[in-house]
């Protein structure tokens, strides 16, 4: 009898669910996600929806940055493209906001493809600068679309068959369904030939080209797919929010998303992104609501207003220097330790 779980085929070795603990995790996770509205009320259910929106966006950036190694500082602007697509279609054409979400993804994917063009010639800092320029251009464009700082997304466009998808349980399940599909797709992408091509381009694009990978196509796809995810996240955000404005998709949000990927685990598209969003979005939001009044009360207003960026900057720096593989690598070490405990190897 073998001592452990052994895989005898490549298919079994590449499966999503390889060990009993994976099945246990799936059952527990699915159970929690499906029954969340029973124990998560109002505010916390809202937090769960926001978590999923940012998770989708972070997964998109993780595909572009983590898998393909293409730095993008315009991911929030791509999210904005999705949000504005939904909002403008709803406001100007009376289009249903829920049904507009796929169009939001397609619009942002198109913009993502355009953003990929500089990556054919540029790398590293220069590519970062190009995406930074794109972020500012799009921000300016959005400010022209909504000069009053916001566009409201009409309530009536958020309904299907009398069910209001703008908040609460219906929005939670809609976001959950979209998130699960996109996470599954992202998980599969990472282990597909395209995902391996992306990793090859990330690790050494010259070598990748020599072994026959179409580097240009791979880079374009990385930006386009990442853009699609950002667009869907933006579309969901437009559904979630009473109104959207350019201030919701600024460079700071792009940096926040970058932080989520770098801290969670670049290249670990699903789990890395999940950890990053959990720490920087959900965790920070809850910490902030108790920390900021405390700091303001102590007269430390300036620190209160900048605390988020101080913490974000520090965390990014710490992880880049000490753990470039992100929180996921830390957890993997803990898991390995526990798996072997009480033995050291």
């Amino acid at each position: 009898m073998p001592a452990g779980v052994f895989k005898e085929t490549y298919r079994a070795d590449m499966a999503h669910l390889r060990y009993p603990i994976h099945w246990a995790g799936l059952v527990l996770g699915a159970g929690l996600a499906l029954t969340a509205p029973l124990f998560l009320r109002g505010y916390y259910l809202d937090q769960a929806i926001l978590f999923m929106i940012f998770l989708i966006a972070a997964v998109g950036l993780n595909i572009t940055l983590g898998l393909a190694g293409l730095i993008s500082l315009a991911h929030a602007a791509l999210m904005g493209a999705g949000a504005y697509t939904v909002a403008m279609l709803a406001l100007k054409a009376g289009f249903n906001s829920v049904l507009a979400i796929p169009l939001a993804g397609i619009t942002a994917a198109g913009l993502g493809f355009i953003l990929s063009l500089p990556s054919f010639k540029l790398k590293g800092y220069y590519l970062a600068m190009a995406s930074l320029a794109a972020q500012f251009i799009l921000e300016y464009f959005y400010s022209l679309l909504a000069p009053e700082q916001y566009i409201t997304v009409p309530f009536e466009t958020k309904e299907i068959a009398g069910i209001f998808f703008g908040e609460g349980v219906p929005l939670y399940y809609l976001a959950l369904a979209i998130t699960l599909v996109l996470l599954l797709a992202a998980g599969n992408l990472a282990r597909s030939s395209l995902g391996r091509a992306m990793k090859a381009v990330r690790d050494n694009d010259v070598a990748a080209e020599i072994v026959g990978i179409n580097v240009t196509r791979t880079k374009a796809l990385a930006f386009t797919i990442g853009g699609f995810y950002a667009g869907v996240a933006g579309g969901l955000y437009a559904l979630y929010s009473a109104g959207i404005g350019w201030e919701g998709f600024t460079l700071l949000v792009s940096i926040e998303l970058l932080g989520m990927v770098l801290i969670g685990g670049p290249g670990r598209v699903v789990w890395g992104s999940m950890l990053g969003v959990l720490v920087l979005k959900t965790g920070w939001t809850n910490l902030e609501s108790s920390l900021n009044p405390l700091l303001t009360g102590m007269g430390l207003d300036i620190i209160a207003s900048t605390a988020k960026y101080i913490v974000l900057g520090t965390l990014i720096a710490v992880f880049i220097i000490l753990e470039p593989e992100g929180l996921i690598a830390v957890l993997r070490r803990v898991k390995e330790y526990l798996r072997l405990w009480p033995y050291s190897y």
């Binding site: 499906l34 029954t35 509205p37 029973l38 009320r41 349980v169 399940y173 959950l176 369904a177």
Partner: peptide, 19 residues
């Protein structure tokens, strides 16, 4: 099927309960 059923159930029951 479980996701769809759970969604339907909570939209009708859980939603009201949450409110």
């Amino acid at each position: 099927v479980i996701i769809v059923l759970a969604a339907g159930f909570f939209m009708m029951q859980g939603g009201e309960e949450a409110a």
